[in-house]
Amino acid sequence: MSSLLPHRLERSLSLWLGVLPFFVFALVFLVLPTLHVVIGAFTRPDGSLTLANLSDLMSGTILSALWLSLRISLWTACLGTIGGLLVAGAVIRGGLPPALRDAVMTFSGVASNFAGVPLAFAFIATLGRLGLVTVLARDWFGINLYATGFNLTSFSGLTMAYLYFQIPLMVLIITPAIDGLRGEWRETAESLGASGVQYWRMVALPVLWPSLLGAFALLFANAFGAVATAMALTGSALSILPIILFAQIRGDVLQDPHLGYAIAFAMIALTGGANVIYIWLRLRAERWQK
């Protein structure tokens, strides 16, 4: 066989053989399944093309689930961005002992992966009706948390829980950008007569801006795709879009498999779009940091 093939062809064949397992795996278990879902979003059960599935998304339950998901994701991305920036800024540039920085980075690495069932349990044990904080607030301060309108299985409760992985993720993403703010910029600004506030307004924030927006996009995508935390925390009390999709996959509750595809496509479009924004902004930020 090898003697029949021209030498160059044989060489390039053996080159490709080395990466073949990876590409076959990625095709079968990543690309094709995703494509199947995307194509399903644009076809009828008989295989003909349609946009009806997508327009059906704009109906009552699904639209309100989409709206709820968007609100949760935007809100937790927003708070996570601000919270993470504050924490990272305090640890890196706030004059705290350097040992704290290592501790915070290690913790962030772990906590950013906490999304899931145990996180929900932790919040139930802490802020649930019998949780530690709820009980202590009642016994020590006479405050009934649940009488104030707070409810762990509601929007505010879910936001609280999501921040537990959103803030650490932000800390991890934004740390290199804050490290990239060079001391000389601050000193130059100062020697040119600028105050600390002027430095932040005119130099530091504009330089950080693409990184901040990019991180926001990534946090948004991260929250939008999360399912397990919400399910374990609220059951199905709070129907965000992925929970509807989960129920649809499990029991075809929408009685239309192609509507499920459409929901999936909407999710890919949103998280994918957010990621594209993230990558684009990060490249922009890196160009400056050279």
Partner: peptide, 21 residues
Amino acid sequence: FITLLPLVIPPIIIVFGYIRL
């Protein structure tokens, strides 16, 4: 790029594809 895709596509969608495919 391929190795980063799983961060973009939520797991629930990948498994949805598996079940149908």
